[in-house]
Simulated scan of single mutants.
Amino acid sequence: MPGKRATRAQRRRHEEAAEWLLRNGETGQTVAERAAFQSWLERDPENRRTYDAASRLMGEASSAIRSDPSLQRVELRSPRSGRILAGCLLAIGLAGVLFLALDGPMRLRADAMSGAGEMPFLTLADGSLVQLDASSAIAYENSDDRRTVRLLRGRAFFDVARDPDRPFTVEAGGARVTALGTAFAVSLGDTETDVAVAKHAVLIEWAEAAYPSLRVSEGEQAVVDDRAGATRVTPDAALALAWRRGQLVVDNAPLSYVVNEMNRHFAGRIVIAGFGLADRRISGTMTVSNTDAALDFLQRALGVTVNRIGPLIVVRGG
């Protein structure tokens, strides 16, 4: 399937970029090896973009290691050759940890990302406007006959620039959402993809092509089950778009879902402690972009207690 082929191609490109990054760090590289690397860079613009992203991330990891006094004081009790090898392994291991901590895998895939508490506005090359929700990521590409955005994480709102000759499609989960002259938002969940239409309409299709396409009109929200292809449509687009104002509107939602949404906007981590508390239900409108206000809402609505331990917030039953 096209989506799966694209994923395999991206994975191979990332592996090749990492391999070239390591090879280019070695001494004694031959003229033929340098020429092969240059040929790989020029073969596809995505190769250069991916390699540059990998270089930046490795530089950030190396800088973090060099600047940490605790790492500089590490003593390895072994012969000199063993000490050098152990030091290299330590640096590689720490760089790998930092690569993950810095969200390296997602950075290699994404063209635009937002951090915790960030909700940036972007202008794509075709003039379309995008707003990312906190902790979200997208990749996009333009061709002569199509404009494609892949929603890799979180949510995004799209105000699409008119171009009848090049359809604008957002790929998220197993769904493909094509604009029909429109403004709409797409939210990517673990098992569901939500589409809320603010203007005009969109056409939802499935990558597997096993289910009929669906037109969703202005003011409607479609919730797509990525596993079964089932879809329910409701006139709730306005509520679904509340995230653009930093708000969350819920009706009998589990506390676990609310806390996950709050974590998008919180630089630390909010966790739920206590048996059964995560399944407690809550309804209402809260400002999740303001962690203190959202916690106050939970305390009033559910009677929970909140304890802060540095960057960690623990929510317990009252």
Rank of each mutant, 00 (worst) to 15 (best):
P2Y: 12
G3N: 11
G3F: 09
R5T: 05
R8F: 03
A9E: 03
E15L: 12
A17C: 06
A18C: 00
A18N: 00
E19D: 07
L21N: 04
R23S: 10
G25K: 13
V31H: 13
A32C: 13
E33M: 08
A35Y: 10
A35E: 15
R43L: 12
D44G: 09
P45L: 13
P45C: 11
N47W: 02
N47F: 04
M58C: 05
A61W: 03
S62Y: 04
S63W: 15
A64M: 11
A64Y: 11
R66P: 03
S67T: 15
S70C: 14
Q72S: 10
R73S: 12
R73Y: 04
L76R: 11
L76E: 06
S78Y: 13
S78D: 10
R80K: 15
S81G: 06
I84S: 06
L89Y: 05
L90N: 00
L90K: 00
A91V: 12
G93Y: 07
G93W: 12
A95F: 02
F99A: 00
A101P: 00
A101R: 14
G104K: 02
P105L: 02
M106E: 07
M106I: 08
E118V: 15
P120M: 15
T123Q: 15
D126T: 09
G127N: 06
S128C: 08
L129R: 13
D133C: 14
D133F: 08
A134R: 06
I138V: 15
I138Y: 06
A139Q: 13
R147S: 08
R150N: 13
L151C: 15
L152N: 11
R153I: 06
R153D: 11
A161V: 11
D163P: 06
D163M: 05
D165E: 14
R166N: 00
P167F: 12
F168W: 12
T169G: 11
V170C: 07
G173R: 10
G174S: 09
A175V: 11
T178Y: 05
L180R: 13
G181H: 01
G181T: 09
T182E: 05
L188S: 04
G189C: 05
D190W: 07
K199V: 03
K199R: 08
V202F: 04
V202A: 06
A207G: 11
A207F: 01
A207Q: 12
A207S: 11
Y211S: 01
S213C: 07
L214H: 12
L214A: 12
L214E: 10
R215I: 14
V224G: 02
R227P: 00
R232Y: 07
T234P: 01
P235H: 01
D236N: 11
A237Q: 02
A238V: 03
L239P: 02
A240L: 05
A242L: 08
A242N: 02
R244S: 05
Q247T: 09
D251I: 02
P254S: 01
V259W: 01
N260Q: 10
E261V: 05
F266I: 09
I272K: 01
A273T: 02
A273G: 01
F275V: 10
D279L: 08
R281Y: 05
M286Y: 09
A293G: 06
A294E: 03
L295T: 02
D296Q: 06
F297S: 01
Q299V: 10
A301Q: 12
V304I: 14
V306M: 02
R308T: 08
G310R: 01
V314E: 00
G317H: 06
G317Y: 02
G318K: 09
